[in-house]
């Protein structure tokens, strides 16, 4: 009985430990609203490279057209609804896309992804097997695109 109570307490402690994902959005909004000098102070202890990347992303987000921002927020919400392992899987796939797909192919890759997402699994298979896709992308690249299309949020 004692063990059971201890275990229950342990589980409750883990529940409290967990970070609800909504905190990410709240933290971003808080950072976005900070005065420049306040933000400067808040970020001063970050490693310089990470800080520069973060500032660039924040700046890009602030300057984004409202319609696009709204669309991305929708995607972000859908992404957050995914299970953590699905989110991590998609992050890994995008990382692989950026690391393995040559720069000149990425634009076409993104176009192909947009089209693939409109198709059902059978349609995707056929589209990826078209001569144009085979000419443009290697087997591995086409497999990656298929996997990304399958795992992307709505």
């Amino acid at each position: 009985m004692m063990i059971r109570i201890l275990i229950a307490l342990g589980v409750v402690a883990m529940g409290l430990w967990a970070q609800p994902p909504a905190q990410q959005a709240r933290a971003l909004e808080k950072l976005r609203r900070m005065a420049p000098e306040e933000r400067e102070r808040a970020l001063q202890d970050m490693p310089p490279v990470r800080r520069r990347i973060m500032e660039q992303r924040l700046d890009r987000w602030n300057r984004m057209a409202p319609a696009r921002k709204q669309r991305l927020q929708g995607s972000f919400e859908n992404f957050r609804q995914m299970k953590p392992e699905q989110q991590e899987n998609l992050r890994g796939l995008v990382r692989k896309f950026n690391e393995t797909m040559p720069t000149e192919k990425r634009v076409d890759g993104r176009r192909a992804l947009t089209h693939l997402r409109k198709l059902d699994p059978e349609g995707r298979k056929k589209f990826l097997a078209t001569p144009r896709m085979k000419d443009r992308f290697s087997d591995g690249e086409r497999e990656l695109l298929a996997e990304m299309a399958q795992n992307m949020p709505d």
């Binding site: 971003l28 950072l31 973060m54 992303r57 991305l72 995607s75 972000f76 998609l90 949020p153």
Partner: peptide, 23 residues
């Protein structure tokens, strides 16, 4: 510090989703 990490993660995910949009 915790919030900065959370904001960083959110920006990272938004950037990833941006990259998945049509060019």
């Amino acid at each position: 510090a915790q919030e900065i990490e959370q904001a960083e993660r959110a920006l990272e995910d938004l950037e990833m989703l941006r990259q998945l949009e049509p060019p």
